[in-house]
């Protein structure tokens, strides 16, 4: 029971965090057809900006500065790089952002070294929100979940209730029509790109203070974000939400389970044989928790190649 509650909470928080980053990615893709490979690297940049600010001007200014600076970087990337290579096609745009991700990572290594930095939340936020059974549940996890939840609600209201939101959603489906209706499409693109980048930066600044902040965080998190978008269906914000929660829960549950394929064989009496066979049969679910999202993705590709909410090709 305790395991169930804690794992669910952790999973939801992780899922919401994933959503915060993948929502921007999927919106940008839906509108511009550009898969911004460097999106998770924007997230990492946010974490490092947050870290630098805690060292100098404090935690909260960092939370505010990170999205602003990363958003500004987003504007630069869209305006001066992506727009320049647009004529060569989407693969070229993807490659450009791929190279950008590479540069961001190397620059961060240049300034902060190859190892994790100790980016800490302020001490007054370091307390247990509540105790469930014997587990002290950290307040900061709830804080991450809360911020991500707020962003989700805000994004939802923005997209469904405001004029800008309607234009953005329309541009996701029929960019040329939106342009023909007299909206300045390049500015909308730049805005959405910047907003997506800013969201990723904010997520990084908030989450980096709890999860390890290291030059590897973008690769690890980034591949998860890509899995989310493939599972959810690129371009679909709802799909991103569902897939994020699904993957968050999936990971948090498999971390604590010591099941192995051999146990399955045990049911039919082949347990000892499977134990003796070893290899993949005795791998515990908990040790391969990191691989679970990828297995989930393969399964989704088998049954629904377009993703949960994606259109059929």
């Amino acid at each position: 029971m305790e395991y169930l509650v804690v794992s669910t909470l952790n999973g939801v928080v992780h899922g919401l965090l994933l959503f915060m980053v993948s929502a921007g990615l999927t919106l940008i893709f839906g509108m511009m057809g550009v898969l911004n490979f460097s999106h998770a690297w924007f997230y990492m940049l946010g974490a490092y900006i947050g870290f630098t600010c805690t060292r100098t001007i404090g935690f909260w200014p960092g939370i505010i500065l990170a999205p602003l600076l990363v958003g500004a970087l987003g504007v630069f990337v869209e305006r001066y790089m992506l727009r320049r290579v647009h004529k060569y096609g989407h693969a070229h745009e993807l490659l450009l952002t791929f190279g950008l991700a590479f540069i961001i990572e190397e620059v961060i290594k240049l300034f902060y070294g190859d190892f994790p930095v100790s980016y800490q939340m302020p001490s007054y936020m370091r307390f247990a929100a509540f105790t469930i059974f014997d587990t002290n549940y950290p307040f900061y996890r709830l804080f991450i979940g809360g911020v991500a939840g707020l962003i989700f609600v805000g994004l939802y209201l923005l997209l469904t209730r405001t004029r800008i939101g309607i234009i953005v959603r329309a541009a996701t489906f029929r960019p040329t029509t939106v342009e023909a209706l007299g909206h300045n499409l390049p500015v909308i693109f730049m805005g959405v790109f910047a907003a997506g980048a800013a969201l990723a930066g904010l997520a990084g600044a908030v989450a980096g203070a709890f999860f390890p902040t290291s030059p590897n965080m973008a690769t690890d998190f980034g591949t998860l974000v890509f899995v989310v978008t493939v599972v959810g269906g690129l371009g679909s914000v709802e799909g991103a939400l569902i897939a994020s929660l699904m993957i968050g829960l999936f990971i948090s549950f498999s971390v604590g389970l010591n099941w192995a394929l051999a146990d399955l064989f045990g049911i039919v009496g082949l347990g000892p044989w499977a134990q003796a066979f070893g290899g993949i049969l005795t791998l515990k679910l908990s040790t391969i928790a990191n691989s679970m999202p990828f297995l989930l993705m393969l399964f989704i590709l088998l049954v629904r190649p377009a993703g949960l909410m994606g259109d059929r090709q």
């Binding site: 893709f29 898969l35 989407h90 693969a91 993807l94 591949t223 890509f226 899995v227 978008t229 493939v230 690129l234 290899g279 993949i280 791998l283 040790t287 391969i288 990191n290 691989s291 999202p293 990828f294 297995l295 993705m297 393969l298 590709l301 088998l302 190649p305 090709q313």
Partner: peptide, 29 residues
């Protein structure tokens, strides 16, 4: 067979995830 179910950027991401699957699996095996 899996990756070519999709084309374009989907393909790229699926290949990335498949490699990452091996990368996460290998040290435990």
């Amino acid at each position: 067979w899996f990756a070519t179910q999709r084309s374009g950027v989907y393909f790229s991401m699926v290949t990335l995830a498949l490699a990452e699957l091996l990368y996460t699996l290998a040290p435990t095996w």
